[in-house]
Design a protein around this nucleic acid. Sequence first.
DNA 1: GGGTATTTGTCCGTATGTATT
DNA 2: AAATACATACGGACAAATACC
Lengths: 285, 285
Amino acid sequence: MPDPMYRQIAEDLQRKIESGELERGSQLPTEIDLREQYSASRNTVRDAIKWLTTRGLVETRPGQGTFVTERIKPFVTTLTGNPASGGGEDLVYLAEVEASRRRPKISPPRVEIQQAADPIARALWVDEGTPLVSRHQERFIDGTPWSLQTSFYPMSLVLEKGADRLIQAIDIPEGAVNYLADECGVKQVGYRDSIAVRAPDENEVAFFKLPSDGRVPVFVIFRTGFNEEGERFRLMVTVFPADRNRFVTNVGAVPPTIAALPSAQASEATAEPGTPARDALKRSG
Amino acid sequence: MPDPMYRQIAEDLQRKIESGELERGSQLPTEIDLREQYSASRNTVRDAIKWLTTRGLVETRPGQGTFVTERIKPFVTTLTGNPASGGGEDLVYLAEVEASRRRPKISPPRVEIQQAADPIARALWVDEGTPLVSRHQERFIDGTPWSLQTSFYPMSLVLEKGADRLIQAIDIPEGAVNYLADECGVKQVGYRDSIAVRAPDENEVAFFKLPSDGRVPVFVIFRTGFNEEGERFRLMVTVFPADRNRFVTNVGAVPPTIAALPSAQASEATAEPGTPARDALKRSG
DNA sequence: GGGTATTTGTCCGTATGTATT
DNA sequence: AAATACATACGGACAAATACC
């Protein structure tokens, strides 16, 4: 039993895209042209295009046409670092981005005092309603939006430990983890990252300029920081668009990251981890 | 200027779902009913449902109806472990799953000899065409498909180091990394994980029983193993459905994982990392 | 800036097929 | 076998965005 017609059209176009017959970034025939090519109605052609759109193969631009999507050069973030300096925080972020010859930018933080709500309270192991400081920052690379980050700290750090700079809407250049260690004696001896993926919400679609149909998911990374007593004193929630980001963790003795070697950077940073898995499975399936 | 009608319908239904007015797993009114409720055509109602479907809020079942999607209890995999025992491989996988009182199952491996193709050759730093052993396994939890894993080893390990069991289609119960260390003196002193997300291919849709429109992405984890000389001797590619998996990495001194404490497991394992970020952004936006 | 042609987006109505109960 | 509900496919009309003259 053959596939429905819109699938046949979509798969034929997919084949042309993957074979290179339709080049990356080039424009597809208009819906009217495709209607004639495939002897189908315009709505059926649109269903085929929608199928390709969901899979990220093409994108439509009102008033212009339908285009084969370009490959985005991914940015690689290393999650394992030095726990005492906050690994993956501002400092590491800036160094890592500059090592790959891109220009980072961080917005000034938006600081708020909140009452701990359910999921955040649970992650920090505090009761709901506990006062928290939240610091929210937008991060850019080469002018394009890259991540949204919100960090949460118990207000007790400010009230009892004197961490006044946490409630000031000013960037902490040396990193909040270093600041807390140096000024307040609260040392981060370890952290745990939890990595998940979900559909973006409206704010994220707008900020990252993602397609409004929500087909591009976002990474959500929860970083819980532990002090010397094994207590949770910090939660950092960072959201990254999944189409332009990779994450790396190193365990044990591992040679230096490729990104640290500018000359070799192009070779691995641009390798798309998606493709080989698919190839491997297809070959062996 | 208001949104198009199908968006208004979709957002009204979304509100009802998130407010609990429409319960998880319950059936929505039929398309005909919705057509009358909202005074729209059936096609417009279908556009609204499609919008909700793309975001994973509802699912349609031909002949039955449209249903609010149930939340899936995620399984958490720890990526950081003991490099010498393969961290995150069979042994750790089984222990971790059993600690959370779920029943794991691993298929016998499908073993093949391949010539290294582009992306895999690059990850292993070998020339294209180099002979490789690939070992492919399907992994299940509680009978449901959980991951697809393919490991690649240079054939030189078999030919020169005598790692004969790599080319036998039999599971290596102690783990391939332990086997290579004990039998062949090839010790894994570290590994690097690369984490990406992409749309599933047809094999993955079929195996994981994902919705065929490809809206549920998959995690792809590349694990590159390094020996004492800092050489890459192993590549493991694992694919997980993104809707039922989370990943955790621990850095520095971190208290034991929640999953290791069966009583407390429910509290954090079921916390959805997606929600708090969204809440946080909404509150502060 | 304005007007026009092109292209995709939205919305309608209808008919028929397919899966499930 | 019949009823129900979603899936596919067609055709038409107008709106909105964009590009170009």
